[in-house]
């Protein structure tokens, strides 16, 4: 198969398995994209795990632990896919902790209150799920297959988030303020999450059918699904321009693309200390991996 034939094949809905021939560029882009997803699941754990220890009821403690557990499980599944494409997990983790590899913007920001816990599980997970559903049709079949499991498991995460938020909104003024304040802080990163408005025909991820959706499409889907849910609770979105036009398209203030670029290249408010935490945990447990995996080698 030539590269052109391969392109035609995937654009026609063709699926690629691990042992199939694929152009070098496709393989390289695939590894980078999937690796970033794995990194994001793993880094996403860090903002949330502190709140496991502070969860105010046994139910919340259990649900939050289970949610984070799912995310670690997803990272495991995702890195296995990358490994079968040729890049071992340890190499991915090396690149992650050294800052050479990227992860999604939202996981570079701090979490400050229990309000963040609700807003993240509800809205950040919602934004992520929209992207993840678009990956169910990924041309690379092993990745599409794990996305099925991932999407299925994520379904409870949003409900958990919504439950936390609704309970707070039905509580005291102080509790409602926790949600509003968190939403105000998270709105910027949320709007940047799906990436800039590159036309999907110019996006190599879409061209190779790794993604089946353009960035703007995803963002519009997010706004359409979740802004009404936000407004119906009496919460304010910190964007005076945000409105839905008659033709169904959402208008909004242009997100700060400089901030996005700055953050994902490793300069977010929490990037350094989270990578540091990962690096130290990894160093401290290196002996365990040596003892446990030695026999397998």
């Amino acid at each position: 198969m030539s590269e052109d034939e391969f392109l035609e094949y995937v654009q026609g809905g063709g699926q690629v398995e691990t042992r199939d021939w694929m152009p070098d560029e496709y393989r390289a882009k695939l590894i980078k994209f999937i690796e970033m997803h794995g990194n994001s699941e793993l880094m996403g754990v860090l903002p949330e795990r502190e709140w496991i220890l502070r969860a105010p009821t046994l139910q919340r403690k259990l649900a939050l632990t289970a949610k984070v557990q799912d995310e670690v499980g997803h990272a495991q599944l995702i890195y296995r896919v990358v490994e079968d494409l040729g890049k071992p997990r340890e190499a991915c983790l090396d690149d992650l902790v050294s800052g050479r590899a990227k992860f999604h913007n939202v996981f570079h920001y701090p979490t400050k209150t229990w309000g963040d816990v609700g807003v993240i599980a509800w809205l950040v997970d919602a934004a992520a799920i929209i992207s993840q559903k678009a990956l169910l049709k990924c041309s690379y079949a092993p990745y599409a297959r794990i996305m099925k499991k991932i999407c299925w498991e994520e379904s409870f995460h949003i409900l958990h988030g919504r439950d936390v938020v609704l309970t707070l909104m039905n509580g005291t003024d102080e509790q409602r303020e926790l949600v509003q304040e968190a939403l105000t802080r998270w709105w910027g990163p949320l709007m940047q999450f799906h990436g800039n408005q590159i036309a999907r025909e110019d996006d190599p991820m879409y061209v190779w059918r790794i993604k089946s959706q353009g960035n703007e499409e995803a963002r519009q889907q997010f706004l359409d699904g979740y802004v009404p849910q936000i407004w119906e609770l009496g919460l304010e979105v910190p964007d005076p321009k945000l409105r839905k036009r008659d033709d169904g398209v959402w208008e909004y203030t242009e997100p700060d693309w400089d901030e996005l670029r700055y953050v994902v290249t490793g300069h977010g408010p929490r990037t350094a200390d989270r990578l540091d935490l990962r690096r130290r945990a990894r160093e401290r447990s290196a002996w365990v991996r040596q003892v446990v995996l030695a026999e397998a080698a």
């Binding site: 793993l42 632990t65 984070v68 990272a75 495991q76 890195y79 935490l277 990962r278 447990s285 446990v292």
Partner: peptide, 13 residues
């Protein structure tokens, strides 16, 4: 639960 996210192996986590 303090080990969630930082266990020595992802599977073990």
């Amino acid at each position: 639960s303090e080990w969630t996210g930082i266990a020595p192996l992802l599977e073990e986590d």
